[in-house]
């Protein structure tokens, strides 16, 4: 092992970039999923539970089958099932979607902990990564650019969803269901079915986001694995104005915000770490206050959304 060069403060920058890439993926998948769901006119506040259940099922399946990709798939399917439950209950008249979300947050987390006990100790195979930094002579840069395939998938998915929502027929149906349910019905589309599919897709993505936590980074399963990434991603969607492209950017920002505290601590800035670690939450709240207004709904907000009314 040759000693890497001393980066000092430049190391903080590398850590922020690396952190943005490492930490952002769950945010990205959950926020893309929630964007789809909210664009159809529903809020699913239960994606934290979906994320945790996804993390557990991915880890468990990867451990039992030896295939991490099978784990990712099962995580997505588990998420889609929770999405189906959410959408079905919410399709009943006079059921509050936010409340059902909170219920599924509890249920998803509970199921994950309930079924996940035997998987805390074993070690599951990890998802592979691509060495995008192979060109660099600096081991720090190489490590920062050690990128997981799921991150790349998310990076591709974001513009794809952006385009699909804008330019395709089903994108239009989805948006119509979300902006004006009556108009969608008048056009002969089933609002209920559209929302079921959108919520299931959202759940699938959130489950996949969870699999990243357990199968890649930090790469373990235990009951403290998620520190609220699934909840934060929902706030992130509002800040990203329901735009998949913006979700990608904001997810990176959140990833960097998470990496900020540890990066500063490692160069000896050790005061106020508790407050620094709350940076992503404070940042979200500040941005929310800044971007909200009482005079009009948020720009880009789907008209049917309970959360923006």
């Amino acid at each position: 092992m040759t000693p890497p060069p001393d980066l000092g403060w430049a190391g903080v920058l590398v850590a922020l970039v690396g952190g943005a890439i490492r930490v952002s993926t769950p945010y990205l998948f959950v926020s893309l999923g929630e964007t789809l769901t909210e664009r159809s006119g529903r809020v699913n506040l239960g994606l934290e539970g979906t994320l945790v259940l996804g993390a557990m099922s991915a880890y468990g399946v990867a451990y039992l089958s030896g295939s991490p990709w099978l784990g990712v798939l099962v995580a997505g399917l588990a998420g889609a099932l929770l999405g189906l439950l959410h959408a079905s209950v919410c399709n009943l008249p006079r059921v509050n979607d936010i409340a059902v979300g909170i219920a599924l947050f509890l249920l998803g987390t509970g199921l994950a902990f309930y079924l996940g006990k035997p998987f805390i100790e074993p070690r599951a195979p990890r998802l592979p990564s691509l060495a995008l930094g192979a060109w660099s002579g600096s081991p720090q840069v190489r490590a920062a650019l050690e990128v997981n395939a799921l991150f790349l998938a998310g990076a591709v998915l974001a513009p794809l969803l952006w385009w699909a929502l804008r330019g395709t027929r089903w994108g239009l149906i989805l948006r119509t269901a979300g902006d004006n349910a009556d108009a969608a019905r008048a056009l002969g589309h089933s609002v209920g079915l559209t929302r079921v599919l959108a919520t299931m897709a959202g759940g699938f993505l959130a489950g996949v986001g969870g699999s990243f936590l357990s199968l890649y980074y930090p790469g373990t399963w235990n009951e403290g694995l998620s520190s609220g990434q699934g909840l934060m991603a929902i706030a992130l969607v509002i800040f990203a104005r329901w735009n998949p492209l913006a979700c990608f950017g904001v997810s990176l920002l959140f990833g960097a915000a998470t990496a900020l505290g540890p990066a500063l601590q490692s160069v000896g800035i050790t005061a106020y770490y508790d407050l620094l670690n709350a940076a992503p939450y404070g940042l979200t709240l500040a941005l929310l206050i800044w971007s909200s207004s009482t005079r009009h709904a948020l720009v880009g907000a789907p008209g049917e959304l309970t959360i923006s009314k």
Partner: peptide, 10 residues
């Protein structure tokens, strides 16, 4: 876990 991993990386 996420913070522990980040501290380790940093």
């Amino acid at each position: 876990p996420v913070r522990e991993a980040e501290v380790t990386q940093s």
